[in-house]
Write a protein that binds this DNA or RNA. Structure first.
Lengths: 182, 182
DNA sequence: TTTTCCATGTAACCAGTTACATGATTAT
DNA sequence: ATAATCATGTAACTGGTTACATGGAAAA
């Protein structure tokens, strides 16, 4: 059993909603949870076959004329058990991710003040852009999925991103003020 | 030149403040920027020697009786140039980090409602604890470093953590409400 | 007396991305 | 004509952690 590789569960989670080929899984992950989760083909394809050998999914090859074959994976009840078991487990601690932007800011005294100010202004713009994207998604989510049983959960993950991005926008304003006047 | 390995710059940044041994660098990184940056010995020691061969740092071995030898590294002016050059570069994009907590929440409909609620309550507690830690650090920072030229930058990185943690606390309240009533 | 601290170092491993190969089809 | 899409797959690489080895000193 892997220590930190959660790709398996991300794939099982997607397969719990519907059957997918490897190719579609990648796209589905990107569009549904792409703001906090990525998977590359180099991970997806080997692990899908692993799921089959472990009995957590089955595969059927679709042959369509004039198109490449598709291998469609379907979760098994054993796969659902494994997914549910993982979903019940607590996530331990907040993992410390490396933040290169903060690393540069921390050593900001080494370079002229306006260098850091410029970095923060760029960060500010990124956060505002991201926020607008999130607001658009929120509108779409409400319009198309507000009746889905998944809605409160999907809205929850989206709101997480929104609140974080709003906080970053505020921080940029506050910090630009401080660096300008001190 | 490495594509994403920034350990070199983290080490140069620390060395720009003062000379360090590998052992002390680890501790210094942990206590100064440990909330957004980690380094392990497996990275530190090889890269320190690499800094010396690249002329970015020099090393002197300290021999003290009854203690293990220490190898103390000092940044060179070339090392400072390299650091300053990196500090001026823009950080591109916000890297998407994997968030296992959100992954579980996204698939929350697969398990009973109280499972997700429990996860959020735990997350809430973690965020509140982290926030108290940050507030304590803020008090210490103000008391001991408010006159330092580094102060606005160090405060900036700390405030970033505070604002993010406050946002998470708010989100937990909002989301617990929504999941309880819907 | 057992654990922790000091201090350096490396081998083995794990996770993950990138870049490529293949080749037909469809859109620009 | 050129590029993008569909679709699977893998080898090579990079980044990073973990676990261990060494061994004396000081603290619990």
């Amino acid at each position: 059993m892997p220590l930190i590789n959660k790709t398996k569960y991300a794939l099982l989670g997607m397969l719990s909603k519907s059957s997918f080929s490897g190719y579609d899984l990648r796209k589905g992950i990107e569009s549904n949870i792409g703001h906090f989760w990525h998977e590359s083909y180099g991970q997806i394809y080997p692990i899908l076959r692993q799921l089959v050998t472990e009995g957590l999914a089955t595969s059927q090859t679709e042959t369509l004329p004039g198109r490449p074959n598709r291998i469609v994976y379907t979760i098994t009840s054993k796969g659902q058990d494994v997914l549910h078991c993982w979903l019940r487990e607590s996530t331990e601690g907040l993992p410390v991710e490396r933040n290169e932007f903060l690393l540069k800011l921390f050593f900001g005294h080494e370079v002229p003040r306006d260098v850091s100010i410029h970095h923060i202004q760029e960060h500010h713009q990124l956060a505002k852009d991201l926020l607008r994207t999130y607001y658009d998604i929120q509108t779409l989510l409400e319009a198309h999925h507000s009746a889905s049983p998944n809605y409160p959960f999907w809205l929850g993950t989206l709101r997480y991103g929104i609140i974080q991005a709003e906080a970053v926008v505020e921080w940029c304003q506050e910090t630009l003020d401080r660096l300008s006047q001190s």
